[in-house]
Each structure stands twice: as C-alpha cells, then as structure tokens.
C-alpha cells in the first residue's frame, strides 16, 4: 500500500490568521484540530529530521511557519486538539500515543535514521526508554519555542541554554489575557444586569435614571474584567507578592479605590454601603480572575496553587457574603 503523505506549507493564509485570533478569543478552541499523522514539509528524504507535535491547529501552524524553507517530516500526534505542554501534562502527548502513531504511519519504513525531535515542553508526557524499546526510535528534545528549531537543527541538534528556558513574555501574557477577557464577558453581562436590576428596585420611587445606572454598572463590571485579565497579566511581574491572589488583591484594591470614587460621583443617591458592597463584590471577582491566571502562566506549581487557594477561596467567599450583606443593608434596609 502506498501511503500518501499530506503536505504542509510554511506560509500562513488569511484563514490561519483568522483562526488563530478566533481561538485566542476562546471560541470553539477545542475543535481547532489537524488530522493526526505524518506530514511532509518541503521535500523531505529518508535522512530528513522528524519533528513531533500536537494536533492543535495553532500549534501545527506555529511549527510549520517556524521551519519554513526546511525539508522535514512532521509527525502529528492525536492530542485531542490540545497544545503540546498541556497535552503532555494530561498524558495525551505521551509515550503510548507516540508509540502507536510511529507504528501506524510506519515511520521506520519511511526514514533511515532512528531519531525524533520532540518539543522540550512535551517532556512531561514522555518516557524515552519505553519509546526506544517499543519502536527503536530515540527521543531528542528540541527547543522550547518552535521559532528556535532552525537554529537548533543548524547547530547539530543542540539547543542553547536560552532555548531551554520557558519565559512568560509580555506578548504571551497579552494573548492569555485576551482569552481570559473573552471568557469573562458572560460574567460581566450577568453582573451588570443584576446591578442594574438592583438599582431599579431601590430607585423606583425616587428619580431613577436608567441611562446613568446602565452606563455606570457596565463600566464598573467591564473595568473589573479588564483589571483581572489584561492589567493583572501584563503587570504580573511588577505586582507585589508571589501568590497570584495577592497580586490580584493588590490590583483589586487599586481598582476599588478608583471605581468607588467613580460610583459616588455618577450615582450620588446611592448609600456608601450599597455602592461599597458592589465594589467589594467586584474586588472578589478580580481576585478570582487573577487566581485563575495561574493555569495559563508558565511557572506555577500545583502545590503552590493549592497553598494559595486554601487561604484565598474562604476569604473570597467571605468577601462575597459581606458584599451581599452590604448591598442589601445599604440598598433596602437603611
């Protein structure tokens, strides 16, 4: 049987850019997939290097663009559309899948050498001795970032110290924030709607102005999302403390100061307790968002996250309860 290998290009088309932007907004990210299997890039021969990657389309796109102009084989594993690092953590970018895929595409028949280049961040899923035993192929780890692959190959399959370290660059933090922002929009919608409804209920006797209430509540809710996603993640190294919750608390307090003042100004009829209750609720929301930034950061550990959550979750829930008490007391009782 002649196996026809699909070809990959090193170029991005407009659809690729659109797709990358869409998944960064978090829209149908899990369906952004490439069919697993062996692909050709350029005109690979029996001696050409074999790169291994995940079947998240954005991952494949970044790899093929990075190695544009080289002749390579690209073995795409079935990671259910998840990027290399996350899939390695889950084990889907793992030993079993690699062994199976090598057998399925009959890689041993196609190339004459017995070396695979894996992304370094795929290492948490791999046991090289088992792969070697089952398939005869040796695993070597390429650089962390796909962009360094050409230099890695040129240097005789050697990565510099710098290529081995994972940093968390401002542009990565921006992209992550974009995803978090887009995923928080529904929460903002709900919070704003509830705040406006509360304003209507407490203000229906006096001169209630829907425009003012609507704009003020949407502004504070959306600002809390921007603070908890973009501001927090871009300022991450500058915010005090090591725990993400602490960083979130810090930026949340700054937010609270500014927007409490704002609320007093635009809705002066509302009591201090009532407006303060809303802001306290949003402060807890900001801390929660920043806590959740741990998952997409590049350096947090499970033990550390557990430790900070043990303090943060009870405190945040208490803050939410207090905020509700303040809103009810300030708006409906006093």
């Amino acid at each position: 049987m002649v196996v026809v290998h699909k070809e990959l290009s090193g170029e991005w088309k407009s659809l690729d850019y659109l797709g990358a932007f869409r998944v960064r907004l978090g829209i149908r990210r899990n369906q952004y997939r490439v069919e697993p299997g062996l692909y050709k890039l350029g005109n690979p021969q029996k001696e050409s290097p074999v790169l291994v990657t995940a079947n998240y389309k954005l991952t494949v796109d970044i790899v093929r663009r990075a190695v544009k102009g080289l002749d390579l084989w690209i073995l795409v594993l079935d990671t259910k559309g998840i990027n290399v690092w996350c899939a390695a953590g889950k084990g889907t970018f793992g030993t079993d899948e690699l062994i199976n895929r090598i057998g399925q595409v009959e890689l041993g028949e196609i190339v004459s050498h017995r070396t695979l280049i894996l992304p370094q961040l795929g290492a948490p899923g791999m046991t090289p001795v088992e792969v070697k035993r089952a398939t005869g192929f040796s695993i070597t780890y390429g650089p962390v970032e796909a962009i360094d692959i050409p230099d890695y190959i040129k240097a005789g399959h050697k990565a510099s110290e710098k290529m081995r370290r994972k940093v968390y660059s401002p542009s990565e933090r921006f992209n992550v924030a974009l995803t978090h922002f887009s995923q928080g929009l529904l929460a903002v919608l709900i919070i704003s709607a509830v705040f406006v409804l509360l304003d209507i209920v407490i203000g229906y006797k006096s001169g209630f102005q829907i425009n003012k209430s609507l704009s003020a509540n949407v502004i504070i809710a959306i600002s809390s999302l921007i603070t908890g996603s973009f501001l927090a993640n871009l300022l991450l190294p500058l915010l005090p403390g090591r725990a993400f919750s602490l960083k979130g608390l810090f930026i949340g307090i700054v937010f609270s100061g500014i927007f409490l003042f704002y609320l007093f100004n635009v809705l002066p009829d509302h009591s201090v307790l009532y407006s303060g209750g809303k802001i306290l609720f949003l402060l807890a929301f900001i801390v929660y968002q920043v806590l959740n930034l741990t998952g997409s950061s590049t350096y947090t550990s499970l033990s550390g996250v557990r430790k900070e959550m043990a303090v943060t979750i009870p405190l945040s829930l208490t803050a939410v309860v207090i905020s509700l008490i303040l809103i009810i007391t300030g708006g409906f009782i006093l």
């Binding site: 978090g26 990210r29 899990n30 259910k80 559309g81 998840i82 990027n83 996350c86 889950k90 889907t92 995803t179 978090h180 995923q183 529904l186 959740n292 930034l293 741990t294 998952g295 997409s296």
Partner: peptide, 16 residues
C-alpha cells in the same frame, strides 16, 4: 480544558 468530551466545562476554563 479540552478533549472534546468535556466541552462544556472547558468553555469557561482558564488554562491551556
């Protein structure tokens, strides 16, 4: 945050 089977949970998730 993915894997198809857990689409609903993952749509609101932060990681990956």
């Amino acid at each position: 945050c993915g894997g198809g089977e857990c689409e609903e949970e993952s749509s609101s998730g932060g990681c990956c």
